[in-house]
Structure formats: structure tokens, C-alpha cells
Design a protein around this nucleic acid. Structure first.
Lengths: 107, 107
DNA sequence: TTGCTACATATAGCGATGCTACATATAAAT
DNA sequence: ATTTATATGTAGCATCGCTATATGTAGCAA
């Protein structure tokens, strides 16, 4: 049931929303939900570990702050992250074209 | 290094080549390589377990034969497999449109 | 004969990752 | 007092593509 068709593509999506502007985790979830026309509604157990992975690998940089009494960690895209994003965009283009081609053939 | 962007999409690709005609594992590898313009060259450790999974779940049905002294297991798409393929095609359409939308946005 | 290449299948075990379930805390509204 | 929205986190599960390795046949070249 848990296809998780998303596997391997989440990082690119996150980097893509952070490219527009720095956001904290909760806002990343909302941004992805809006940008995908409500198709993507990621659970916290997906997004927070993903952000920590991206930070640990240097693709994004996070900083704590407190807004209206709530602490939040806001992430911005690094130069390395921008490079990764560019690579993931072109990989996605090739990959999706390939899948389209293979799925299109009919008996 | 091991992106494996393919995760979650392999079953659809296999079902799609088996929809055209029944094939054995080795021929599935070749069919995917040709249909993808040499982009996909799956190792045996990927394809054979995937075929066994699809068979165990009733999406394909396999049968042993011997051709020119070599034994092979030829798989055909079942009715359940055709239904799965149809669902995966429409899921892929929605998924790829969503990723396109999210990755397209720029700062 | 030996060795190489293509054909053909298989499995143990690894690594990565999205997700469920749960936990914690603040602020505002009911 | 309770619920809802905001905000983050982790333990542990399940899945699955892939590496590495193993086995065997057929045909051809040196």
C-alpha cells in the first residue's frame, strides 16, 4: 500500500522550494502542499529527517530562531545545494522522459 | 552515489514490457535497455527478485522451458497485472506532473 | 584443451529512505 | 479546560534496488 513513489525524489523537491526563499520545516511542508495543488502532504517524520540529512551533507544550512514564542529552524540553500538541485533537475528530466517512453509502448 | 531514482517505479516498467509479449528475465533486461535507448541496464540482482515479487503477488505468471539447452522462466501479464499497470500509469502521470510543477518554480 | 563471451537464473546481505507512531512544547481560539 | 494550529524530533519498521557472488549451458577462438 505504501508505494512511496517519492523515494529518491524528495531531496530535489525540498531543495526546489528552498531555492525560492529560506523556510523552516513546517513551512516547507506547507510550500510543498501548495505547490503540488495539495497532492503532497508530508508527515513530520518524513520532512524533518530529510532536512537534517540535507543539512549534514551541506546542501542546506539551518539556523534557530524564535518567532511568536515558538522556536523554528530556518534553512537556506547553499552553493552545494544549488549545484545538487541543478543536477537533480536534469536527472529528473532524463528519468521522466525514459519512464514516459517505456510506459507509452502498447501491445 | 546510489541514487536509485528508480525505486517504486520498476514494477510499472516491467509490467509495461510484459504487456507487449511474454518474456523471460534476461529478455526483460534487454527489452528495457532497448526501450529506454540504452538508459536502463538493470543488473540481474535487480530484475530476478523483482520478477519473483511480481509473480508472488499475482501480477505475472511464470513458466519454465528449455531453449537451446538453457532453461528459462517466461512470464506473462495476468489480469491483475494489467489492472496494476493501468493504475501505475495513471499514478505516474499524476506524480510526474506534480514533480514537474514543483521543480519548475524558480526564485 | 583452455579460455572467453553471451545466455540464463539466483540469493545473501547492504544501504538508503519514506513513513508510522509517538513525544514534546507554545499560542490562540472556543 | 479543551481543542486546534504551529513547530520539531526520534525510534523503529518495511521496502527495494543494487553489489557481489555463485552456478550452469552453448559457441567460438587460440
Amino acid at each position: 500500500m505504501n508505494h512511496s513513489i517519492l523515494k529518491g525524489h524528495l531531496d530535489g523537491l525540498i531543495l526546489s522550494v528552498l531555492e525560492v526563499e529560506p523556510l523552516h520545516g513546517y513551512a516547507v511542508i506547507e510550500a510543498l502542499r501548495h505547490r503540488s495543488d495539495e497532492a503532497l502532504d508530508l508527515p513530520s517524520g518524513t520532512i524533518y529527517p530529510a532536512l537534517r540529512r540535507l543539512e549534514r551533507s551541506g546542501r542546506i544550512a539551518g539556523e534557530w530562531s524564535v518567532v511568536e514564542g515558538r522556536r523554528r529552524r530556518t534553512y537556506r540553500l547553499t552553493a552545494a545545494g544549488a549545484a545538487t538541485l541543478a543536477r537533480e533537475r536534469s536527472e529528473w528530466t532524463a528519468f521522466s522522459a525514459m519512464v514516459d517512453r517505456v510506459l507509452a509502448a502498447r501491445p
